[in-house]
Amino acid sequence: MKDFEALKSIWHNQVALPKVSHEDVLEKVNKTRTGLASRLLLEMLGMILATAFLIYVWIEMPFRMWTTHLAMAVFLGCCVYYIIAQIANYLKITYDSLLDKPEEYILYLKKYKHDRFIFNTRKYRIYSIFVTAGFMLYFVEIAFLAMLWVTIAGIVFTFAWIIVWYFVLMPIYIKKEESKLEDMIENLERLEMQFADSDFE
């Protein structure tokens, strides 16, 4: 039979030591910072190129129908939204909340997870609907100018994609995200209860 003091002495005899040095930490800090910056830069560069290409096409191609101009505006709007959303995401990575009390920090985590869920599901759905709407508007002019089979192929492909995406892929994705979020919230609520400073009976 051992008492708590004996357990304390076992604890102080442990030889397990951290394998990480302060140099490792600083090296990781530099790598992470560069990693994040390059990822952001790459994504931004890709989107800026896509935006520039869209503007070029819009100016150079003699589009005649208002639907095509609207499609171009929708595509550009989507690009700008994507860039802004990415920047906002990176700016959200702040560490101030880490100094909160665990109970408050858990609340922050719950909110953060919920916001990410909204971003990954509802906002992504709206974004995809706009891209699809852009393609549909674009095909109106194609239908007048291109050969019949090209128009039909384009329309079939677009609608097939909408059906597969909206009725198959998106529900699977949302269901998966929802179950992940439910698990997280459930665990966070359990933790919140543990840290609640309630009086003991």
Binding site: S97, L99, P102, I106, L109, M184
Partner: peptide, 16 residues
Amino acid sequence: TWIYRIAVNTCLSYLR
């Protein structure tokens, strides 16, 4: 105290 607080919150968020 400050470092412990960060460590506790890091552990909590890791589990989440």
